[in-house]
Computed example of a mutant assay.
Amino acid sequence: MDVITVVGIGPGDPKFGLLSHEALFEKADLILGTERHLEILPPQYAHKGLIPSKKLGEMRELILSYPEDTEIVYLVSGDPLVYGLGKWMSEKFPGRVEIFSGISAMQYLASRVFLPMNDAYLTSSHAKVPNFDLIMDLEKVFMVTDAKVGPYQIAQEAVQRGLKKTIIIGENLSYEDEKITILPAEEVEDRDYQMNVVVVMDER
């Protein structure tokens, strides 16, 4: 039984990826990932790429449809164990998964604004409503967000509670159109935000 290697490719730009990528691509029979993830493949390995279904059940069936001696590499954003597929893959394919952690978008944003993560709480609003009572009670929270609960909605939770919070918004992190905004919660605009990470922290 061969290993399914789940690789965190970092926040986006290939220069933040692991140095061992090339060896993994060469060894692989099949490389899974979204269209954006597969863009990092060198031309000689592009034919190995396949975009799986976003539905976890269908994704599992796809992997199971290949012989167990198939060398599979699964490319995911950031760090597979920071609100990624790492936990799910290790549970669904016990004994077969190896994880290579990349730099998460949260870590990347912290480095760009020189913000230590030692005392930070990490969470996500993907497909769920966060515990805002907890979040607003903490000094520093990093959050991966989605279209339903994004920077504006998060900021409004602070405003409605009368809290003085600073909001740091990182959009399209590591890409050419990267944008990082730091402002008081009451000044966060109600607009569309692109592939973002939000930090909520007490004003200093």
Rank of each mutant, 00 (worst) to 15 (best):
H21S: 14
H21N: 15
A23T: 13
F25C: 02
F25Q: 10
F25Y: 15
E26L: 09
I31Y: 04
L32E: 05
G33D: 09
T34Q: 07
E35L: 04
E35S: 10
L38Y: 13
L38P: 09
E39I: 05
E39H: 09
E39V: 08
L41F: 08
P42H: 14
P42L: 14
P42Y: 10
P42F: 12
Q44W: 06
Q44S: 11
Y45W: 14
A46L: 12
H47C: 13
H47E: 14
K48M: 13
G49W: 12
G49S: 10
P52M: 15
P52A: 12
S53Y: 10
K54G: 15
K54R: 14
K55Y: 13
K55D: 14
L56D: 07
L56V: 15
L56S: 09
L56A: 14
G57C: 03
M59A: 12
M59W: 09
R60I: 12
L62K: 05
I63V: 09
I63R: 10
S65R: 11
Y66C: 04
P67H: 11
E68A: 12
E68R: 11
D69Y: 12
D69V: 09
T70N: 11
E71C: 08
V73W: 07
V73D: 04
Y74A: 04
Y74V: 06
L75H: 05
L75D: 04
S77T: 15
G78T: 02
D79Q: 05
D79T: 00
V82I: 15
Y83E: 01
G84I: 06
L85S: 07
G86R: 03
G86P: 03
G86Y: 09
K87M: 10
W88Q: 12
W88K: 09
M89E: 03
E91S: 11
E91G: 01
K92V: 08
K92M: 03
K92W: 05
F93Y: 12
F93H: 06
P94F: 08
P94S: 03
R96S: 04
E98N: 12
E98I: 08
I99N: 00
I99S: 01
F100Y: 14
S101R: 15
S101F: 09
G102N: 07
G102A: 00
I103Q: 04
I103P: 01
S104P: 05
A105R: 00
Y108K: 06
L109E: 01
L109Q: 00
A110I: 13
S111D: 08
R112T: 08
R112Y: 06
F114C: 11
L115H: 01
P116T: 07
M117A: 05
M117E: 09
M117D: 03
N118D: 13
N118M: 13
A120N: 07
Y121L: 08
L122I: 04
T123A: 01
S124A: 08
S125K: 02
S125E: 02
S125G: 04
H126E: 00
A127K: 02
A127P: 00
K128S: 01
N131P: 02
F132P: 05
F132M: 07
F132Y: 15
D133K: 08
D133R: 06
D133A: 03
D133S: 06
L134S: 10
I135D: 03
M136R: 11
D137I: 09
L138Y: 14
E139I: 02
K140Q: 07
V144L: 12
D146L: 00
D146W: 00
A147V: 13
A147E: 15
V149M: 14
